[in-house]
Amino acid sequence: MSESLDDLEERINTLRSEIRRAVRAREGALARSLRAELRGAERAWDQALAAHEPTPDEAAPDEPPGSLLPVREQVHQALTLLGVPAAGKMIVAVHGALRAGSLRGPQLTSLRRDEERSFRTSPFARPYYLCAALTDRLSASRGLLAVSTWPLEKRVIGPLSPRVDFLTTAIRVAEHLLRLDEPAEQAPPGAQRLLARLAQNIPGAAPYGTGTPGAGAAVRGAGPGVVPGFAVPDPAVVVKAARAELAVHADADATARAEIAGRARDRLRDPERLFGGAMLTLARREA
């Protein structure tokens, strides 16, 4: 068996250097066909490898029960915890840190499209849909996910909304940690790290002030649960600091959001309200 693996590796190596030769010579067609051949050889290698060295399915027993839920439900959980539209990366981070979940970024890429397809096939058949946040142009915002049951005002994004939603995220994460029975320092390190990362970018939220990377982090003993590299912020302080900045932006943001939501109600039909309008049609309507 290993012989055939060796042969395959030999062939893979030969193919690779031929591809690089072809790429350098700008022989695009040749490079493409060689690449196809290479992918074939690599697949064969992977299969041979699997047969050769049966990898035990280690992941399964360790996975937390939460991950047995479908991806969309895990995402829903995370979004519900946050209560604001969020990017895939934040959803993965929050779910990983607070729910010990194991979502991976790539699982989220086709989610919105699948939801839209499902909605268009049979509208409102599901209790909720994972939908888009809407931009000022009423188009689907790049990369942000929201929940269909939220009021439009929450799902539209004005100029201050990214900041407002970021501060809200920090508050929600901190409050979640406060609800845990244990002191913050006993919280899962992932959660501490997430909170520390959020707190760094909120004035007055990080234990020793922002802008002084890690200054003073050394003061605390390296007791169990302390995450080195980050000063562990006090969740109550984070909540207070984030609320303080939030108060500055809240009114202006609410006004902007109400205006956009109003426009969305006037101009968009149901599917567009959830998944965004096409910009060109809007441009025409604007004109």
């Binding site: 990017a87 990214p162 939603d165 970018n201 900045e245």
Partner: peptide, 26 residues
């Protein structure tokens, strides 16, 4: 990410950007 949260921190630090100025338009 998060409406340029890192960038806002940096601009507040080095250019003294006031807190209310936090709007982000893509």
């Amino acid at each position: 990410e998060s409406g340029c949260a890192e960038l806002l921190r940096l601009l507040r630090e080095i250019l003294g950007l006031p807190i209310p100025l936090a709007s982000y338009t893509d």
